[in-house]
Design a protein around this nucleic acid. Structure first.
Length: 550
RNA sequence: GCCCCGAUGGUGAAACGGAUAUCACAACAGUCUUCGGAACUGUAGGUCCAAGUUCGAUUCUUGGUCGGGGCACCA
């Protein structure tokens, strides 16, 4: 619908002599203004040297003809020169009927058809516990994956996990210190890591010991050590897998630092002779200053590749394993500097890969008090958070499965409701809201609609049609374009905001209108079905589960 | 010191340069339980400061204040 209006406006602007004027078509914040509004006349008036109001009048007249009165019942000019469009009764009814009939296809798009998009997210580190930062990456990454899939692309879900590096040496040292030979839980590993990390900072001798251990792990010649490493890694990965399952993520590729370290180091060393990298104080570095950035070490003076070199290796490995048109990496915003330098280096090494790769930063999940640090061992783990919220949701539901669905919904909503780049202030005491603006609010609205539909299966009575559309109908019409915008802007929060308004409007409808047994029963059932379809598809795109009852 | 990001009612958030700044929590006042109240209705309260650009600025520019992050061998 929006697309049709946009096209008509473009035609008008082209005829008027301002084909390049940038304009928006939006849903007015006040529904009394209509279903769509555009600032096109305001935007083009200056370039054309015309009065905005009179240009708006011309545009309004043009749109009435172009759209026809079966689409737009009313086109008016308001304020400084906005053109407001009110959809015809039958156009709204048609869209609602479409939503009710299309099922899971409602809101899907073809803009990305034929494209292969790799999304790399979550990225926890074996030997450390998965904390709420990784949870945030997972929730956002999964939703982006679903949005892009909905846009028609083939999405390749990737997860890059740091199974070598100093943190591993610290954890293994810690396991030895604590006398754990057969670690069986992620928690044990987390404690071992915290112990190793503390010792590393406190004692220079231990630091040297752990550094040596780190070198040994890279070499991989000490078979007893390799066995310790393998055991710990397996325990970690199994624990991660359990969480992915609960969160609803299934990865296509797992990449490990143990497989990018060597190739990354080799590529970086080759890059020295090409003049991309240079040696300095025994280390191999990239001088970011030549592009207005800062210098980063890619290979340490001890010869081990850093995170940067491994990421170079990863970029090549991804290209080799899964050809893609676009590659997105979802991580915390603290890494933007790292990725800027990395991409600068990659541009020189492999411009094609660099051009199709982008970093999608997300904010932190910040605690209201105190700083979270896995080194200190005071992290909020992903599993712990899910468990706590599930317990809280369990107070309102006897079914543990539903309690978990509600908990996952509440957590995901908290993350997805706001712009992905900004931090989330998280108060573990107050925990998460299950009322008002929340995941359960959306889930509950859907449950209510589904309940009506199960009763309605018995048949319909009333066949009257209300004269004007309900507010909920006018909102349903916008779902496809909201999904597209959220996809194009990589911002699931756009969809979350819309779904919250949709749920609110449904609850209002539910409170004021009787569906079953009313004179308009057949019509209202269709509205309920259209709402349920829209909400179901919306929740699916966010990765929020839709319980059957609550 | 340099670089990046942010600042919106008491609290947490939304607003693709547009119309009377939206939503929830908390507060206060109601709905009364006929398709399930994790709901609905109403009241009160807000754009960090100062300039600038613009017909129009929460949004863009510059300066300041405050906060977060990054800046050579961690990831």
């Amino acid at each position: 619908m929006e697309e049709r209006i946009r096209k008509a406006i473009k035609e008008f602007l082209a005829r008027a002599g301002a084909p390049d004027a940038a304009f928006v078509v939006e849903r007015p914040s006040d529904s009394a203004h209509g279903d769509y509004a555009t600032n096109a006349a305001l935007a083009a008036a200056k370039a054309l040297g015309k009065d905005p109001r009179s240009l708006a009048d011309e545009l309004a007249r043009y749109l009435i003809d172009a759209l026809g009165d079966s689409v737009a019942s009313h086109v008016s000019v308001a304020g400084p020169g906005f053109v407001n469009i009110t959809l015809a009764r039958e156009a709204v009814a048609f869209a609602v009927a479409e939503a009710a009939a299309q099922g899971s296809e409602w809101g899907s798009d073809t803009a990305y058809a034929g494209k292969r998009v790799m999304i790399d997210y979550t990225d926890p580190n074996p030997f450390k516990e998965m904390h709420i930062g990784h949870l945030m990456s997972n929730v956002i990454g999964e939703s982006l994956a679903r949005l892009i899939e909905n846009g028609g692309a083939t999405v390749i879900r990737a997860n890059y996990q740091g199974d070598v590096g100093p943190h591993v040496a610290k954890a293994i040292w810690g396991l030895r210190k604590l006398g754990v030979t057969e670690p069986s839980t992620a928690q044990e590993l987390g404690e071992a890591y915290a112990a190793g990390s503390r010792a590393y900072d406190e004692s220079p001798e231990t630091k040297a010991e752990i550094d040596a251990l780190n070198q040994e792990i890279y070499k991989g010649t000490d078979m007893a050590l390799v066995e310790e490493w393998r055991k710990g890694r397996d325990v970690s990965l199994a624990a991660f897998e359990e969480i992915y399952k609960r969160l609803g993520t299934k990865f296509d590729y797992y990449f490990f630092e143990s497989e990018t370290a060597e190739s990354g180091a080799r590529i970086v060393r080759d890059g020295v002779s090409k003049g991309v990298f240079e040696e300095s104080e025994g280390a191999v570095i990239y001088r970011g200053e030549k592009k207005g950035l800062h210098t980063l070490v890619f290979i340490t003076s001890r010869g081990t590749p850093t995170y940067e070199a491994k990421d170079v290796g990863l970029a090549f490995l991804k290209e080799e394993r899964a050809q893609f048109d676009r590659s997105l990496i979802v991580t915390a915003a603290e890494q933007v500097g790292h990725f800027k330098v990395l991409f600068a280096a990659l541009e020189e090494l492999a411009p094609v890969i660099a051009a199709k790769t982008a970093h999608v930063p997300h904010g932190f999940l910040r605690l209201t008090e105190g700083k979270m640090s896995s080194r200190e061992g005071n992290v909020i783990t992903a599993a712990g958070l899910v468990e706590d919220v599930t317990k809280k949701a369990g107070e309102r539901s006897e079914d543990p499965l539903i309690a978990e669905q509600v908990a996952i919904g509440a957590i995901k909503y908290m993350v997805l409701r706001q712009a992905p780049g900004s931090d989330i202030i998280f108060d573990p005491e107050k925990s998460l809201s299950l009322d008002g603006d929340s995941g359960p609010y959306l889930q509950y609205a859907l449950v209510r609609a589904k309940k009506i539909l199960t009763y309605a299966a018995n048949g319909e009575s009333g066949t009257e049609v209300p004269k004007s559309p309900y507010a909920i109908e006018r909102l349903i019409v916008h779902f496809p374009e909201v999904a597209i915008r959220a996809t194009n802007e990589l911002s699931p929060n756009i969809l979350t905001t819309y779904l919250t308004e949709l749920a609110s409007e449904w609850n209002h409808f539910y409170a004021t209108e009787q569906v079953l047994g009313s004179p308009e029963e057949a019509y209202k059932q269709r509205v309920a079905r259209a709402f349920a379809t829209t909400m179901t598809n919306g929740l699916t795109l966010l990765g929020i589960p839709a319980p059957e009852r609550m």
